[in-house]
Structure formats: structure tokens, C-alpha cells
Design a protein around this nucleic acid. Structure first.
Length: 409
DNA sequence: CCTCCACCGGAACGTGAGGAGT
DNA sequence: ACTCCTCACGTTCCGGTGGAGG
């Protein structure tokens, strides 16, 4: 029997899993007709040889911004080719090209200018790009995805890009900015804001019904026929709708549900698989947050975990937590921070939703914050111990347990 | 009604890392 | 290569406070 034979045979669930990935662009985008038409209308100026207005697109994650823009871009380029107009769309992700230099260097290279990875002054790179585009009559639409990330490091990119047209003789350039953050224009220079935001398109979150439609459409391609039980799609949609209608989340959920069903060797995807998937995604999300926490925050969190393990109660005063925190620091040989700082760290943990804290006054016994864990302790344990500086903590627990026993005896 | 606990949380300041400018 | 600036992280200092118990 071949090693891979059972893997091939077990593929009874999925027909084409890639359809569920966020990078997939469907041929039809449900419930985005309005936005697509608006975008197409604005960009169609390019086909008439005019410069399209600059556009700003807003919407939370998973509202179809990127997919819509890519879809319209495809259609635009195809039509341009048919009618022999030189129109191209360049897609740039601001998370990957996260400095002005990288953006311009990338653009310049597209237009056959040789620009080194680094070293040149930024304005020279910009000039190389400008000259490169202007070689021919054409219209270039630059899509800046996650533009808010790029702008955090200075809005000069946008300033330069939005002013480039006045220095171009043959070519035309317009900018489409995509942002998750609705308030990001506040940080922009007023001139940039007005020139970039000539047109604005908002992508509202999907509701549960709309999410269902999206999932249905993708499921048809992604899964083999009849493997999805009836309640699966509505349940995925409902879970995702609870969290600001994120379609990416819904698709993830559906995909993970399928994977779980597959791994369990089931013939069908059932609602219980969706619930398992939901839990798994949740745990992963928490683990990811905790993993990237600074060391001392991890120790504070460990302190809360330890306390809730060793005592019956769930809530602890900041004093209790601080002394446990100091104990742990002593055990793992790390200089403890002050109580003041720890109080800020707990506030951050609260912001992240890992603990919940409320100020209570206990009269004679002072005023304090009561803090409790607001996630499953089991989803924290492994990720906390995975920090190499904290790995000895598993031993710590035994030691305090012993100390407690001795005290009692 | 006053006191006083056990912290909260604001303000000012110190420090080192990293970026921009030159 | 250099200075200057900003920013995140921490510390020190301290005024503020809701309510149980006297």
C-alpha cells in the first residue's frame, strides 16, 4: 500500500479547498453590486483616456474590499486590452511594502528602471518611477492596500503620488487607497486628504444572511456534493456575524470545519464540527496574542493562572497578583517591575480581553482592582510555558504546593 | 460622621533603541 | 559617521478615593 494512498482516498470532503482561502477571487461577489458599479464607474475614466479620480475605500476586515478591487481591476484590464487602451492596475500591499522607498522602488522596477533595494535617496527613486511611467501614453492605477499601515510611517508616499500628475506629460496616474481603519485620514495632511479622497467608497459589514450567500457560493465549488449538512452554513455565518460580519472569518470557519470532519474520517460536515472549529480558531487566536506578549505581561498572566489554580476563588486583588508576580520573578531569575508598572500591564491584558478587571472598594480593607481570567486557563498553559524563560514554571507550581503542604502540616 | 486601608492612576522624568537628517 | 529626535518602556512621587468599621 502506498504511503499516500489513504490520504488520497480520504479526500472525500473537499473538491477544491483553495476556493475557501482569502486570496481566491470569485467570479461573482454577492452583495457588493453597489460598490462594484461605483468603482467601475470611477475607473472607467481610464478607458476614455481621462484620469480617474483618486479613491479611498473603507471597511473592516473581511468586508470584501480587496476582492472587489481586484475583481474590478481584472475586468478593467481585460476591457482595456480589447479596446486597445493602455491601462494597468498595480496592486501594492502596504504591509509588505511598508516604507516609501520600497513602494517607489517597486513601482520604478515595474517600469523597467533599475533601482537598488536600498541606498538611493527616496526622491531619486521617485523620479526614476516618474520618468519610467511617462515613457508612454498610458493610465496607471496604483492600488495601495492596507494604506493605513503605510501611512503610520509618514504620509509622504501619498503626497508624492497624488501630486505626480502635474509632472507627467504622457502618462496618467491615479491612486486607490484601501483602509481598514475608518479614522486614518485624521492623521493625513489636509492637502493629501482632499486629493486622495476625491471619491470615497464604504464597505459595510455583511449580515448573517449575506454571509450565508457568500458561503453557499463558495461551498459549491469547495466541497464535494452533499457533504455539507444543512445547518452548517447558517451556523458558520451566524458565528462570523457575531463578530462584525467578517467574511474571511466565516470562510475560515467553514474550511476548518471541513478539515476537522476530514481528520475525523467523517463522510459529512456536521454542526458539531463547526463548533469544534470555532473553539479551535478561538484558542489559536488567544495563543497568538499571548505568544507575542512581552515577557513581563506573560509573567503577570502566569501569576493570575497560578493563583486561580491554587485557590478556589476566581478573582484576585492586584496586591495578591503582584506578590505572586514577584514570587515567579524570583523563581525564574528576572528583576521584577514596580507595582505601578504591573498595574499598567494588567490594564493592557484587560484591553486584549485576556483578563477582566473591576475596581472595587472593600471599605476598611481598602480599594483595589479585582482581576480574573476571562479565557480558558487550558488555552494559556502551553503558550505561556513555550516561552523559554518561563519553561521552568511547570516546576514552580509543585514547589509552592509543597510549601503550602508544609505550612499546613 | 469620620477614618483610614490598599490600592488607583496622573504627571514628570530617565533611559536606550532606532530613524531621519546631514 | 555623526547628531538630533522620537518613542516605548519603566520608575518615582504622590494626590485621590469608596465605603466598612469604629
Amino acid at each position: 500500500m502506498n504511503l499516500f494512498e489513504h490520504v488520497l482516498r480520504s479526500g472525500r470532503i473537499f473538491a477544491n479547498k483553495d476556493v475557501l482561502r482569502p486570496s481566491y477571487i470569485p467570479a461573482y461577489l454577492p452583495h457588493r453590486k453597489e460598490q462594484i458599479e461605483r468603482l467601475a464607474e470611477i475607473l472607467s475614466a481610464a478607458l476614455r483616456g481621462e484620469t480617474p479620480s483618486n479613491i479611498l475605500i473603507y471597511g473592516k476586515t473581511g468586508t470584501g474590499k480587496t476582492a472587489t478591487v481586484k475583481y474590478v481591476a481584472q475586468e478593467l484590464e481585460r476591457m482595456a486590452k480589447q479596446i486597445g487602451s493602455k491601462t494597468e492596475v498595480i496592486y501594492i500591499n502596504g504591509e509588505i511594502f511598508d516604507t516609501q522607498y520600497r513602494v517607489f522602488a517597486y513601482l520604478a522596477r515595474i517600469f523597467n528602471r533599475k533601482v537598488p533595494m536600498m541606498g538611493w535617496p527616496t526622491d531619486v527613486v521617485f523620479e526614476a518611477f516618474r520618468e519610467g511611467v511617462d515613457r508612454e501614453r498610458r493610465c496607471v492605477i496604483v492600488v495601495l492596500d492596507e494604506v493605513d499601515k503605510l501611512v503610520k510611517k509618514g504620509d509622504e508616499v501619498l503626497y508624492n503620488l497624488s501630486r505626480i500628475n502635474s509632472d507627467l506629460r504622457r502618462a496618467k496616474v491615479s491612486v486607490v487607497g484601501i483602509s481598514n481603519d475608518l479614522t486614518f485620514t485624521d492623521e493625513l495632511d489636509a492637502r493629501v486628504r482632499s486629493s486622495l479622497g476625491e471619491e470615497e467608497i464604504v464597505f459595510p459589514p455583511y449580515n448573517a444572511m449575506q454571509l450565508s450567500d457568500i458561503l453557499k457560493q463558495r461551498a459549491e465549488l469547495a466541497f464535494r456534493e452533499g457533504v455539507l449538512e444543512e445547518g452548517v452554513i447558517p451556523l458558520c455565518a451566524a458565528f462570523a456575524a457575531q463578530e462584525h460580519g467578517d467574511a474571511r472569518r466565516a470562510l475560515d470557519l467553514l474550511r476548518v470545519s471541513g478539515e476537522i470532519a476530514e481528520r475525523l474520517g467523517e463522510e459529512k460536515v456536521r454542526e458539531e464540527h463547526v463548533r469544534l472549529a470555532c473553539e479551535r480558531i478561538e484558542t489559536n487566536k488567544i495563543a497568538e496574542v499571548v505568544r507575542t506578549l512581552p515577557l513581563h505581561s506573560k509573567i503577570v498572566l502566569s501569576a493570575v493562572v497560578m493563583l486561580s489554580k491554587e485557590h478556589r476563588k476566581r478573582r484576585f486583588t492586584s496586591g495578591e497578583i503582584y506578590s505572586m508576580y514577584r514570587k515567579i520573578c524570583g523563581f525564574v531569575n528576572i528583576e521584577p517591575l514596580t507595582q505601578r508598572r504591573v498595574s499598567d500591564l494588567t490594564a493592557e491584558l484587560e484591553m486584549l480581553g485576556l483578563v477582566s478587571a473591576t475596581v472595587v472598594s472593600r471599605g476598611r480593607y481598602g480599594r483595589t482592582k479585582e482581576i480574573s481570567l476571562s479565557v480558558q486557563e487550558s488555552s494559556l498553559r502551553d503558550v505561556l510555558l513555550s516561552d523559554y524563560k518561563l519553561k521552568s514554571l511547570s516546576a514552580f507550581r509543585l514547589r509552592t504546593q509543597m510549601l503550602l503542604n508544609e505550612e499546613n502540616a
